[in-house]
């Protein structure tokens, strides 16, 4: 089936089997390998991307279901020269070791900060229950998200001040 999905702002049309998972579409059809697969039971969250702005597990969405929708992956969040505050936070606070869960973790955390700009440690931990990390014990991930939240709030205030 033909599907058209806008990924990181660019529309891609590909012919896929109905069974193609969104994550396979991203990785194999588009070569966007920043999104990872860590399990086959929709739990680990390594494959988290944004679908029409909401964080989803791209291993549990069919590519055909995403037809006509827009996807943001880790590759669309920021570049080494222009990091998203979450990317900067993970770097600064050593919120990653092997890096495999990191893209999903960042995409999931972005969803949290969208709805809750100043989450408590407990809220961050609850929110991240769908993202497994085997390296960090989550300690520095929590610090990274808090730092990013602070940076985003500061940026929002600065923007507001500039508008005033």
């Amino acid at each position: 089936m033909n599907v058209t999905v806008t990924v990181n702002g660019k529309a891609y049309t590909r012919d896929v089997e109905p069974r193609t998972l969104l994550v396979q579409f991203l990785r194999e059809d588009l070569g966007l390998t920043g999104t990872h697969v860590g399990c086959d039971t929709s739990q680990c969250g390594a494959c988290t991307v944004h679908l029409n702005g909401d964080a989803v597990k791209s291993c549990t969405v069919l590519a055909v279901q995403a037809d006509g929708m827009s996807v943001t992956t880790i590759e669309g969040m920021g570049t080494p020269a222009d990091l998203h505050p979450l990317q900067a936070g993970f770097w600064e606070k050593h919120g990653l070791q092997c890096g495999f869960c990191t893209p999903g973790m960042i995409m999931s955390a972005a969803e949290l900060l969208k709805h809750n700009p100043d989450p408590s440690e407990e809220e961050i931990r609850h929110h991240l229950e769908g993202n497994y990390c085997r390296c960090t014990g989550y300690h520095n991930i929590v610090l990274a998200v808090r730092q990013a939240a602070g940076a985003l709030r500061a940026a929002a205030l600065a923007e507001q001040a500039a508008d005033d």
Binding site: L32, G78, P80, Q87, F90, W91, F100
Partner: peptide, 14 residues
């Protein structure tokens, strides 16, 4: 870290 946080790490399956 820059490659890991931007999704440009290269793992075997990539």
């Amino acid at each position: 870290d820059p490659r890991f946080i931007t999704g440009t790490g290269q793992y075997t399956d990539d």
